[in-house]
Design a protein around this nucleic acid. Structure first.
Lengths: 114, 114
DNA sequence: CCGCATCCTTTAGGATACTG
DNA sequence: CAGTATCCTAAAGGATGCGG
């Protein structure tokens, strides 16, 4: 059984547009928001958290870890005190953001009429 | 707080591409598959079920009911014995399918390289 | 055949407290 | 500051059985 290019959201598996194993999480609650937040460039954990009202540290961490595993963001930790960690979109992350933009364009064009 | 054009999948709420209240379910487990299955035209319940291995009657019914509420499919029941029910994409359903196609195109172009 | 009712498991996600 | 560790709830989804 083939898999779609998304880990969840839009299809699960077995949808035709499948391409091996390239799980991209985008349909969960926070990934899209993180992509947006990182659109402007490198951000540290606290900045992300402040820009995403409602997210808890636990869930934000989980989201970022997943995105890192999937190659959408890069993580850099500095051995300072107090610690500092910065996140940045990778090329793949920027591509994901491109898809998100496509979806938003589509919505703008098609969902306006009731 | 603004809402995105999707009920779940891709962002929840608060994503920029918001347009009032147009809840379209697409990020759940089966909606995208149903859209594909109805791409070829009108299908009856049993056909859909057979074409979606793994789905239970309960969940397929729930999915179709939700899609019907959201105006993505139309449902026609025939008062025969045994009963027959047919589903078909509406114009809005075809538009949703268009979005799904966009996403698949995107995946085809961008997610092939590991 | 279609699909509702019931029960159950799994998972996402939130609340809170604590630590290097 | 940037997280882990626990615990908890709600919701999605699966299993099974019944009914018009």
């Amino acid at each position: 059984m083939r898999k779609s290019g998304f880990r969840n959201g839009i299809g699960g598996d077995q949808v035709e547009c499948a391409h091996g194993e390239l799980p991209y999480r985008i349909g969960d609650k926070w990934t899209a928001h993180v992509l947006r937040a990182l659109q402007g460039g490198r951000r540290r954990f606290t900045e992300l958290r402040a820009g995403l009202p409602g997210v808890t540290a636990k869930v934000l961490t989980e989201t970022l870890r997943a995105m890192e595993r999937e190659g959408a963001v890069s993580r850099e930790a500095f051995a300072e005190n107090p610690p500092r960690v910065e996140y940045e979109l990778t090329a793949r992350g920027r591509k994901l953001l491109g898809l998100l933009d496509l979806c938003c364009d589509w919505a703008r064009e098609n969902l306006v009429e009731t």
